[in-house]
Design a protein around this nucleic acid. Sequence first.
DNA 1: GGCGCCCGACAAACTTTGTCACAAAAAACC
DNA 2: GGTTTTTTGTGACAAAGTTTGTCGGGCGCC
Lengths: 240, 240
Amino acid sequence: MHSAPHILIVDDHRDIRDLVSRALTKEGFRVSVAADGRAMRKVLSDSRIDLILLDLMLPGEDGLSLCRTLRAESNIPIIMLTAKGDEVDRVIGLEMGADDYLPKPFGSRELIARIKAVLRRSQDSPLAARSSERAKQYRFDRWRLDVGARELLRDDGVTLPLSTGEYDLLIALVERPQRVLSRDQLLDLARGRAANALDRSIDTQVSRLRRKLEQDPGDPKIIKTVWGGGYMFTPTVSRE
Amino acid sequence: MHSAPHILIVDDHRDIRDLVSRALTKEGFRVSVAADGRAMRKVLSDSRIDLILLDLMLPGEDGLSLCRTLRAESNIPIIMLTAKGDEVDRVIGLEMGADDYLPKPFGSRELIARIKAVLRRSQDSPLAARSSERAKQYRFDRWRLDVGARELLRDDGVTLPLSTGEYDLLIALVERPQRVLSRDQLLDLARGRAANALDRSIDTQVSRLRRKLEQDPGDPKIIKTVWGGGYMFTPTVSRE
DNA sequence: GGCGCCCGACAAACTTTGTCACAAAAAACC
DNA sequence: GGTTTTTTGTGACAAAGTTTGTCGGGCGCC
């Protein structure tokens, strides 16, 4: 990936979030933050995260159980952070599926080195790590999107070929129906990169998708434009 | 083997992983690391490993039971590492099927010597190591791939001859259906070597495979291209 | 109703992939 | 042991896919 990886920091201490966030930003990463599990889930559904820094001690649901939940549904690499440096936590963290473990206090140099190491490792298996696994199908309007076969089927049986870019964008939309998604978000979700000022690539891709799946591309019913906001995927989607 | 062997280090101590990793890389090996059994299995499914360095003491599933499991399903050579230098472990390790045994602390010179010895030994009996896989068949689309006979059979009874390279690539794909595999991964899985910058050999081989097993090689349904990502084997595969 | 900004469309520039021809390497054959 | 045949890798070029630039029209705001 030639674009900056997107790191999510989950920690209830604002000072830590700010400190780490600044260090990572300076290093060129894109950074999001969350103070607890609920906020974490929100960020995960709004953007594509390449790695999570997860504090062990959190209010409400603690880091370990979050880690286990995350592992159950995705392969996003996790680095555990913890104040206690004892062996027990370390072992538990790795058992829960963390990819690495870093005891506080840590220096930013070390943190960055660890992050890069974990990212490098997880990139050896690039797309395998991305979408939640089991073969699925989505149904909406008169369409069926087969995730295993990367195919778009119309109710009358016709198979519409989708390019990789169209497919990735459609998945991002279909998995977040009835929500306004900004171009930035879509670019992040579908391509894993940030937008630069005059970025029209999402517009172009939406236009191509509409041409393929709208009955009247001039009056779109499925992917609607939200003026000044982005796009919204309006049909109800059923997962199978 | 004219290409660098790929060694997997399984140890929960980061410092050991890093140290050994550095020593082996300097020696010209390709290296992957894993902190526990889960990570180990992930690496094994994503790449072709020529030898495993397995720590006896691991969080969760311990080294001995991992060793036994590994032996049950593959013949990858294993060198056991252990902190306790007593005789008992050594005997147990070898009984579990390890190919060699190395007590910590060990020097990198000694480690490398043992690795080379084990690799040499396992290459002396290359086919013995391979054919112990019980004869299998894979079915997909209208094809049947007979692993024992290295034959590709179409439902109408026609046998399609496959070259060694085509066969190896097809096996790599068939064993990882519905997953995007990068060219690097495929090269590693099918040829056991790393890619150099302008490597088009996988493209060519995929093209040749498509010509043989797709109905319309111009619009492939079985091996799909993921633009910027690699290839994906889309049919559901059943093992017999 | 006019103004400025956002969006859609199209084309140009660029990147990635497919395939061909041929050379190199490996295997088979005599 | 040398020659023929088959298979595999490589570079070139065409085709497909994606991003960027530009322009005109439409939308909201005043």
